[in-house]
Design a protein around this nucleic acid. Structure first.
Lengths: 206, 206
DNA sequence: AGAATAAAAATGAACGTTCGTTCGTTTCTG
DNA sequence: CAGAAACGAACGAACGTTCATTTTTATTCT
């Protein structure tokens, strides 16, 4: 087998992407171990051996996917675009834009689950180091400029903000199609953000 | 092989439990497909074929586990025992007791992830139907008796309550051992519950 | 009590599949 | 016409499950 050159030709890149696309679909549908290289090859319309011209192993495909397909690439610009006169408006917009963006690839959560279950968060830590420096400053700036915030620890804000989104997506998956869903408010996403902003309790009398 | 009788002898039950215990550990550590029947047999100190005297298949082991080992059996009594003069005290206690209870088996979340990834929530819906009737009345009673609650939809309260717990556990797993953790408040669990109760915003002036 | 006995449980070799990966070869491409 | 890409048969290993057999267990009968 000849050695690979340093520059990346065109044809090679397109099939590499085809492999990634096929793999991300299958991983999200079935899980990592339940997906075979033969299935990936078939969906990418490639022979089995052809995959190994682009990836050294199955795990290398997963590594490439978990980073390339992460929704933060779409969510981050969405948050930055979030406008609003008050901090409440800003958070509302940011949360809802993020959730809407995430709903476009709802099974990405599955990829993270696979990451936890099969790789014990090996690649997750890598991801965090990459994303944190980009998202922390946003919330630091927010805390400084908006005096309406009761919670002023930026890291805690980041954590609770993404906790909010994950929590919404997860509970949506669990009870979204069950009989419990009929008991929910008309727009659960609004209700969720509302609790995040104001809590479940009435404001205390002063 | 002779047919099995209807009553369950003692010896059989103990090894059945040994198999479940071995399997739940391995599934949580490695995932479902990454765990082999041989590994389960070895940890249960049993020969490979012996497993099949107690379970028809690998999936049947998983089914038994996902129900028998669910923490709601421990969390529910904990919530019922939660005391407090005010609704705030009650929710604080309930949330913290639940989280502490869940922290005792922190990798059960992995079982749920496996459930999502490998079985598409097949057994999860079954679980929900079993748990919902027990937990909904608790929150219905709470709404009726405590006038301090701003959120009065019991189903939404249940959802957000368990969303809170899941969100905390998940973000704990993700950033708990990272450099970001140093930026967190001293007691993140308290901070989390505090946001749930009062929101991230200062109360609006009236 | 202890022997007899039949069901339950444990054993580990073996079966047929499928897995990830390799490799010699052919085809395509710039 | 070199080097990249695609091909598909082949490899050894590991998988879930089955099976004939032996051992253990619990019960019945003297």
């Amino acid at each position: 087998m000849p050695a690979k050159s340093k520059d990346t030709p065109k044809k090679g890149e397109t099939t590499r992407l085809a492999i990634e696309d096929a793999a991300v679909e299958l991983f999200m549908e079935q899980g990592y171990h339940a997906t075979s290289m033969r299935q990936i090859a078939e969906r990418a319309e490639l022979a089995l051996g052809g995959i190994y011209n682009h990836f050294k192993s199955k795990e290398e495909i997963f590594e490439a996917i978990i980073i390339d397909k992460h929704p933060y690439k779409k969510v981050l610009p969405a948050i930055l675009e979030a406008q609003g006169e008050t901090a409440e408006d800003f958070m509302k917009n940011a949360a809802q834009i993020s959730m809407i963006e995430l709903k476009k690839q709802p099974y990405y959560l599955n990829l993270m689950f696979i990451e936890f279950v099969e790789f014990n968060g090996k690649h997750g830590a890598l991801l965090l180091r990459k994303i944190a420096p980009k998202v922390l400053p946003i919330f630091e700036k927010l805390v400084k400029s908006r005096k309406e915030l009761r919670i002023t620890n930026p890291a805690m804000l980041v954590r609770s903000f993404f906790g909010l989104i994950i929590s919404f997506m997860l509970t949506e998956m669990i009870i979204g199609h069950s009989h419990l869903n009929a008991l929910m408010p008309k727009n659960p996403m609004d209700a969720y953000v509302d609790i995040y902003l104001h809590g479940i309790l009435k404001p205390a009398d002063l």
